[in-house]
Design a protein around this nucleic acid. Structure first.
Length: 962
RNA sequence: GGGCAGUUAGCUCAGCGGUAGAGCACCUCCCUUACAAGGAGGGGGUCGCAGGUUCGAACCCUGCACUGCCCACCA
């Protein structure tokens, strides 16, 4: 094969097997050089096709799920570019918030360090370096996959342009009153040390227990109220026990006080019994301990009964250990140890009535899988209702569609029940919240909390005291572990709090000081992701890119981030721009391992896509993914599934090799456009007809996002029709050309069809297998008459006027005859080299003519030496029947009559069953009366053919036995 | 608790109202001048279970059973 990348080509030296390793890098290079992936923001915007990549987190190398996701996008991009559209696929990566920070923390831990030890500034430096390397790896992998990403438009969720988008959005939401700060119950990940939004909590069913604990009634010794709980460690923070108001068992206790166990001599020693309709009397004992600081439901109960009970008492701290409020006996213990101790202590006091097994779902962090602790804390929140309403409207009026559409209902349902979004994260890696506090006004409320376990001394240090010690703000920020900002109510909107990206230049309007400290929290990584389709084009700047490429067309992603990401992009896009950021979302499934398990590093079942590409070629790998990519369905992936596609690549390679070997050395154009249709024979007309319907079917499948179906159509056409039949029938027409320069009319027709159909099929296959198809299409160029420099610039195949049902029907007849004769040969063990004679007995003159006209086909495909009309049954012959045609094949000396007899008996049995079935249905007047005539006619034909075959074979069988 | 998928050949999955299909695996034969990563032939399925609609059901409807996923304030 030509290694230079030029199109000069010597048909004689093409490799016998497809060598992906030498082909792929050349085209990666050529595509890059030609700028095929570069999009111009000019022209008719209706003729553009735009995708923004779901930016992979910079957490490491890409996995097979990314390979699937990006292959599908590349497939779409290539398909639309082939159709002449201005395609733009924006590449990029996501800083990845907690996930990425965790990766770095793990690396530090391996060196025996923590991020707190090295400080915020140094930590962020490390993150930047890591990110740079990671981006390079990721983009390199995508290029290796063949992805036509517009690299000039690469974006990162935390680069300068995207930061401007984030700040602008935050400010707009703030001005619109959608963003607020407040103290609420949030999901706290103790391990990651941060709050999470509701949808970042995953629920796992875990084995648990239900502890039944006796709460003594105050002043009535010996009397208890028994509550059932799954979390005894929160008992010390109970501020009431709730029962259902209509629960007759407890009516008399409502309003009375209980003695909170293990709380003797401490604040909140006595707690009231309150009545709340939300309590399910049938669960447990019907009495619920209420811990407003550590359970969202209990928090709500407190909200409803503020006058009757004490507020939240936080007994579990942000580090997951019991706080001083839990009392000396428990403070400092981990949640787990505290539980054990509390249960033991209750037991010792005979306050534990019983323990039941109780499986229940536990919320865990989606990044580290550790149980979530519901805690009350000050966080930034965003009101989502107004945005969700717009997204819902867009969905309902069809401005935004999900594929497959069974995701529509859950999507809308989620929007309808949207909750406020907790935006702030107590980590370092992310967009710093663009809010500044005047230190003089708020210093006492800006506290650097030192988790006891890390620092030894568990005292909080206020920023103002550090300032008094002469520490600079920068030092303070570096030194602080977690600065907690405790502001409430109107203070948040006072002049001493500025919402802006840069440090305020002017002094505080309230006090005149100029010491501003930025909010230490960062934004949820999904906040910048939500702006992605806007920010990649420079929004809010009115860039040329934005006006031309926004809104985009399709988003391809997995259902696991439908709410986390897709819905939020819709909401943001609709809110800021009024248009849906993309009109369609194609949902790909999750790639699992062969047993259907999710791939994960800890399970050790991850498959490295690069390894597969190295081993079997990128095209085969892509095909194996696409062929299993039915919308929304998960893919159990095993390396075995790449073998078929690998073989297919080789088949494609060799079919082109065959065609090239049979073309003249001198470049000569064989174009379907110049085809003289009067010179076509049956096989030509048949394959052209099939080719036209292939193109149509692939177009349809692509329009329906049925990529696997499209790939399957090309596969089946190329292999089962083009190679198995058409090429075989073209061989004799080309063999006669050996050594001759000038074409005959017939060889010209054959070569034209071969070059035209193969060339077009390569184009259809290109989006799935870009490398091999480019290589082969280029090698055909001296003959195809194509002038474009690259396949993608050559236009989609549009065969017209080849549809020919008659040719298809005739060809099917010939193929059936060939198959019958082949089966006969094989089953009678006729040596493959042995040519046979076939005598045919035909009732229908048209069929006879067809056979005679195409006897060369039978000769070639069934290795029939001579085909002649039968005059009776030759002795020592085998019989094959195809509809109304019977073949007798004399096989004196070769045939084993016993084998033939058995073969015929089997066939006859099959046919009589067939005839019986047909007749059964045809004799049913209800069927013939009600079924459509076409169906009845089909069945009659079936019966006729089966009966004819049956008669022919039975006849032979009787003679054989006689 | 609510919802959505899936259940078809040994394996992975198409088909979704008119004779049960593909790939891989298996058996037989063949290195026939494109391809042994190939060719020809073959075996293998009461289409999860039970009802119903229909002339006709793998396909539509209703239950049920498993499996997976999503949602939900099940102490």
């Amino acid at each position: 094969m030509a290694r230079s990348g030029s199109i000069s080509y010597n048909p004689g030296v093409i490799d016998k097997t497809y060598p992906p390793q030498s082909v792929e890098p050349r085209w990666t290079e050529a595509w890059k050089k030609a700028g095929i992936s570069r999009a111009q923001a000019v022209g008719d915007p209706r003729n553009r096709f735009v995708i923004v990549i779901p930016p992979p987190n910079v957490t490491g190398a890409l996995h097979i799920g990314h390979a699937l996701n990006n292959t599908l996008q590349d497939l779409l991009i290539r398909w639309h570019r082939l159709h002449g559209r201005e395609t733009c696929w924006v590449p990029g990566t996501d800083h990845g918030g907690i996930a990425t920070q965790n990766v770095m923390e793990k690396q530090l831990k391996a060196q025996g360090k923590t991020r707190h030890q090295i400080g915020r500034a140094e930590f962020l430096d490390l993150m930047q370096t890591w990110t740079r390397d990671c981006k390079k790896t990721i983009l390199g992998q995508l290029e290796r996959l063949g992805c036509l990403l517009d690299m000039g438009r690469e974006a990162f969720t935390m680069d300068e342009v995207r930061a401007r988008s984030v700040h602008h959005a935050f400010r707009r939401f703030w001005d619109e009153g959608l963003i607020e700060r407040g103290e609420r119950m949030v999901n706290w990940c103790v391990r990651c040390g941060t709050a999470l939004s509701d949808i970042e909590v995953e629920y796992e069913d875990r084995k648990g227990k239900l502890w039944h604990i006796r709460y003594p009634v105050a002043g009535e010794p010996g009397k208890f109220l028994v509550v059932a709980t799954t979390r005894p460690e929160t008992l010390l923070g109970d501020t009431s026990v709730a029962v259902n108001p209509s629960d007759t068992r407890y009516g008399s206790l409502i309003g009375k006080k209980l003695l909170l166990p293990l709380r003797k001599g401490m604040p909140n020693e006595q707690i009231p019994v309150v009545a709340d309709a939300h309590v399910d009397a049938s669960f447990g004992t019907g009495a619920v301990k209420v811990t407003p600081a550590h359970d969202p439901n209990d928090f709500d109960i407190w909200q409803r009964h503020k006058s009757e009970m004490a507020g939240p008492i936080s007994v579990i701290a942000f580090d997951g250990k019991m706080s001083p409020s839990a009392g000396e006996a428990y403070a400092g213990l981990s949640r787990e140890k505290a539980r054990d101790k509390i249960v033991a202590d209750l037991q010792a006091q005979e306050l534990l009535e019983k323990i039941d097994e109780h499986p229940h779902s536990v919320g865990v962090c989606y990044r580290c899988q550790q149980p979530i602790e519901p805690l009350v804390s000050q966080q930034w929140f965003m009101r989502m209702g107004p945005l969700a309403a717009k997204a819902l409207e867009a969905s309902e009026k069809g401005a935004f569609k999900l594929h497959p559409d069974n995701w529509e209902a859950p999507y809308r349902n989620w929007l309808k029940n949207i909750r406020d979004w907790c935006l702030s994260r107590q980590i370092w890696w992310g967009h710093r919240i663009p809010v500044w506090y005047c230190v003089r006004c708020h210093g006492k409320n800006l506290r650097a909390s030192m988790p006891a376990a890390q620092e030894g001394a568990g005292q909080d240090a206020s920023i103002s005291s550090w300032l008094e010690q002469g520490l600079s703000l920068r030092d303070i920020e570096t030194r602080a572990r977690q600065i907690r900002v405790e502001l409430s109510g109107s203070a948040v909107r006072s002049a001493s709090v500025r919402v802006q990206a840069e440090r305020p230049a002017k002094p505080c309007p309230d006090c005149g000081a100029s010491d501003w400290l930025q909010d230490p929290d960062v934004l949820d990584t999904w906040f910048s992701s939500a702006l992605w389709p806007l920010s990649v084009f420079g929004w809010p700047e009115k860039t040329q890119d934005f006006s031309f490429f926004y809104p985009t067309n399709v988003l391809v992603t997995g259902y696991e981030i439908l709410y986390l990401w897709v819905a939020r992009m819709q909401m943001m896009g609709l809110h800021f721009d009024g248009r849906a950021p993309f009109s369609d979302c194609v949902i790909n499934g999750i790639v699992r391992d062969k047993r259907g398990k999710k791939m994960s590093k800890s399970l050790g079942n991850v498959v490295d896509p690069l390894l597969l590409m190295d081993k079997h070629g990128t095209d085969a790998f892509r095909f194996s993914l696409v062929s299993q990519a039915h919308p929304g369905r998960d893919i159990p992936y095993s390396e075995d599934s790449i073998k078929g596609p690998r073989n297919f690549a080789n088949k494609v390679w060799n079919s082109t090799r065959f065609v090239l070997m049979n073309l003249p050395e001198k470049p000569t154009v064989y174009s379907l456009k110049d085809l003289d249709r009067s010179k076509l024979e049956l096989s030509d007309r048949w394959i052209l007809s099939e080719y036209e319907s292939l193109c149509r079917r692939v177009e349809e499948a692509m329009a329906e996002q049925e990529f696997a179906v499209a790939a399957d159509h090309v596969y089946a056409f190329l292999w089962d029709k083009f190679c198995d039949w058409y090429v075989e029938l073209a061989k004799p027409r080309l063999e006669v050309m050996a050594g001759k320069e000038e074409d005959t009319e017939d060889s010209r027709a054959a070569r034209t069809v071969l070059v035209g159909v193969l060339g077009g099929t390569l184009k259809l296959l290109h989006p799935v297998m870009p490398f091999i198809t480019e290589e082969l299409w280029q090698s055909l160029k001296p003959y195809s008459g194509e002038t474009a420099d690259l396949l993608l610039r050559s236009g989609a195949p549009k065969p017209e006027g080849f549809h020919d049902p008659e040719a298809e029907a005739r060809m099917v007849f010939i193929m059936d005859a060939v198959k019958a004769l082949r089966a006969l040969r094989s089953q009678l063990n006729v040596p493959p080299g042995l040519k046979i004679r076939a005598h045919h007995a035909v009732q229908n003159p048209a069929e006879e003519r067809l056979l005679i006209e195409h006897s060369s086909y039978l000769r070639r495909l069934a290795r029939v030496e001579e085909l002649c009309a039968a005059s009776g049954r030759p002795a020592q012959s085998a019989t094959a029947a195809v509809g109304a045609v019977t073949f007798y094949v004399p096989l004196a000396g070769v045939i084993d009559l016993e084998v033939e007899r058995k073969r015929l008996v089997k066939e006859v049995d099959r046919l009589s069953e067939e005839v019986r079935q047909c007749e059964g249905r045809l004799s049913d007047p209800v069927f013939t009366g009600r079924a459509p005539e076409s169906e009845v006619e089909k069945l009659r034909l079936r019966r006729r053919e089966a009966a004819a075959e049956h008669a022919a074979l039975t006849d032979t069988l009787t003679h054989l036995e006689a």
